[in-house]
Simulated assay, not measured.
Amino acid sequence: MTDTPKNTSSGPRLTSRAEAARAERMARQAAALRANLRRRKEQARTRQDQTDPATPTSSEPGAQDRHPTGEDKTCP
């Protein structure tokens, strides 16, 4: 039984030009992923700011007596 030796490398050999193109693609992808992560974090911060209860305004009657959930702070 003759088994062919298995190639232990991770893939085909690339020319120096192909390797440079591959490295450029990977660098562009890494930069795009970092930019995407920054955008997603900024979106999450914006959403968090929008969902945080705002401080009560003085124009709303009794606003300072209310809990952020809208319930009165005073006990019955």
Rank of each mutant, 00 (worst) to 15 (best):
G70A: 02
P5H: 02
R17T: 13
P5V: 05
A35Y: 07
K41G: 03
D65C: 02
R13F: 07
G70S: 03
G70D: 08
A20L: 04
C75F: 01
A27N: 11
A18P: 04
T55S: 15
R28G: 06
R25S: 13
D65H: 01
A30I: 02
T57N: 14
H67C: 01
R38C: 03
P56Q: 10
D3C: 11
N7Y: 05
Q50L: 12
S59H: 12
S16T: 06
A30L: 08
Q29G: 07
Q43Y: 02
R25W: 10
T46C: 03
A63T: 02
T55E: 15
E42P: 00
A63I: 01
G62K: 00
A32K: 06
A32W: 03
T55F: 15
T57L: 12
Q43V: 05
M1E: 14
G70V: 01
R66K: 09
A54F: 03
G62P: 14
E60Q: 13
T15C: 04
R17A: 14
A32I: 05
Q48M: 14
L37P: 00
R25P: 01
S10D: 11
Q64C: 03
S58C: 08
R40Q: 14
R17S: 12
G62N: 09
A20H: 04
T55C: 09
A30D: 12
S58R: 07
S58Y: 07
P61N: 04
K41Y: 06
G62Q: 03
A27T: 11
